[in-house]
Amino acid sequence: MLEISEIIQEKVAEHGRERKALLPILQSIVNLKNYIADKDMVQIAEALDISAADVYGTASFYSFLETEEKGKYVIRVCKSITCEMKGKHCVLKALEDTLKVKLGETTHDGLFSLEQANCLGLCDVGPAMLINEQPYTKLTPDSVHEIITEYRNKVK
């Protein structure tokens, strides 16, 4: 597994030891483990010679840059109006049922975190969700069960 320091090094090489390297670094860490830990932020701050508070302030602005530990798969259900009209609530309920967690929680096995997101840009094929970066569309309670089962099997 890639070390955080390697990610930082690589991005600094690409973008310079400058503030503009910050988001690429944060994104790479999120791609790696779905969230940015306190100590990662401290390390980034040191590498870019900015304050850790600035790193935190920036990360916390963006909804995909989580600063709290998340599961291996972060599920983001679109809550915009069209997805809502097409049955988002049932989809969410189905997810809560099958994962046995409430919105905002992570499953005990650390596999799934269940979140909502603002518009995913899939309004014509809603209800929609992302699992990490993979979009799923035209969801129904049944399809949600299938998708989750697939992920579970993938891990096994």
Partner: peptide, 11 residues
């Protein structure tokens, strides 16, 4: 960065 709910043409 089209994020306007209801927009997906850029995609």
């Amino acid at each position: 960065d089209e994020g306007e709910p209801g927009t997906f043409k850029d995609r």
